[in-house]
Amino acid sequence: MLHIKCPHCGMRSQNEFSYGGDATIKRPELGKEISDQDWDNFVYNRKSLRGKHWELWQHLSGCRQWIKVQRDTATHEIFKTLKANEEIS
């Protein structure tokens, strides 16, 4: 079970969180024209990366905040966590 540092609550066990996918995906702006390919990329296409990966988790059984977590998908090492409004650097 992973140990995730919620930027709001501190170190908590994984069973308080739910996984939310790639954190680097930006939703296309509302009302803006977008090609089929770009839309498909937003909805469906994800890279299954090995290594460092920024991803979203929600602290579901805690503060309910969505957070950004930088995790190594191979080793599970967690390098950094950010609040929802903090930019990935």
């Binding site: 939703r27 929600q58 969505w66 929802a84």
Partner: peptide
Amino acid sequence: LSHLEYYLQLVWP
């Protein structure tokens, strides 16, 4: 609820 929170916190803060 999670869905709404997702859009409020991440997409349209």
